[in-house]
């Protein structure tokens, strides 16, 4: 019952978020600010994660295949597919749920407990729309670019590992990443990214917006935001994969 209650409340919250904006230009300016915060602000962690994960996947795959009958170029293929299909869209989304999600929930939650949201409501402003709509739009617009950069850096990380460790000849790795490339896999990843971006921002904002109490509840709301957006990401990942790949 509790889940149903929160699902219903979440969808009512979304109708408020997508209500008519008071001043479109202000929302546009907020969206640009959020693009910088959500997208560009996440780039360093995404870059580091992507390079190292690509490198680790390459070393693990190469060490498993060495000495066998499978050609070593498969390492490049496996790295590319792992990064394109799962690592970049899903694992990075989970990391962003932690970084961006907790930030959104604590920011909006603090505004709630310090009566800043009440101040917006009394002014006649749709507080949910003003605070959350630009964040959702910004994430949906910028996250696909972040994920494309992550894909590139992940594959590059694999090449770097091959070059640095000597476990694999870099040219063989490059040969592998060009094998049996299916462009739809990139489209599939980007479709997933759009859904994940929406889930991270809206679920986290929901948990921040309905915080009731003080600093302790803001912290609890922030934790819930990360937990529930991660669960929603995993559920969406399964559903979208079944819908798009089978």
């Amino acid at each position: 019952m509790n889940i149903l209650y929160h699902c219903g409340k979440y969808f009512i919250f979304l109708t408020k978020v997508f209500g008519k904006p008071e001043r479109g230009r202000v929302y546009l300016r907020q969206t640009i600010i959020e693009i910088e915060k959500i997208g560009l602000g996440s780039m360093p962690i995404v870059a580091i994660m992507s390079v190292f994960m690509g490198a680790v996947i390459t070393i693990q795959t190469a060490s498993s295949l060495s000495g066998g009958w499978i050609p070593m170029s498969t390492v490049g293929y496996a790295t590319r597919e792992s990064i394109l299909l799962e690592f970049s869209p899903t694992i990075i989304a989970l990391i962003l749920a932690g970084k961006v999600g907790s930030n959104i929930a604590s920011e909006i939650g603090t505004m709630r407990v310090t009566e800043q949201i009440d101040a917006l409501d009394i002014m006649g402003i749709n507080s949910a729309g003003y605070l959350v709509f630009p964040k959702i739009i910004a994430a949906v617009l910028i996250n696909p670019f972040v994920i494309v950069v992550s894909m590139f850096l992940g594959v590059f990380g694999g090449w770097l590992a091959a070059y640095a460790s000597g476990i694999l000849i870099p040219s063989v790795y490059v040969e592998g990443i060009q094998q049996q490339f299916i462009p739809f896999h990139v489209t599939y990843s980007l479709i997933k990214t759009l859904f994940f971006a929406f889930a991270i921002t809206s679920v986290s904002a929901y948990h921040g917006y309905y915080v009731n109490g003080g600093a302790l509840e803001v912290g609890a709301g922030s934790t819930k935001a990360v937990v529930y957006s991660s669960i929603v990401i995993l559920l969406l990942n399964y559903v979208l994969t079944q819908l798009l790949l089978i």
């Binding site: 009566e115 800043q116 101040a119 009394i122 006649g124």
Partner: peptide
Amino acid sequence: DRKEVRKEIGMVFQGGALFD
């Protein structure tokens, strides 16, 4: 109509509620 009335209202909260 309520939104129109709200534009005629100002409120000063206990802590100020200024946007940080």
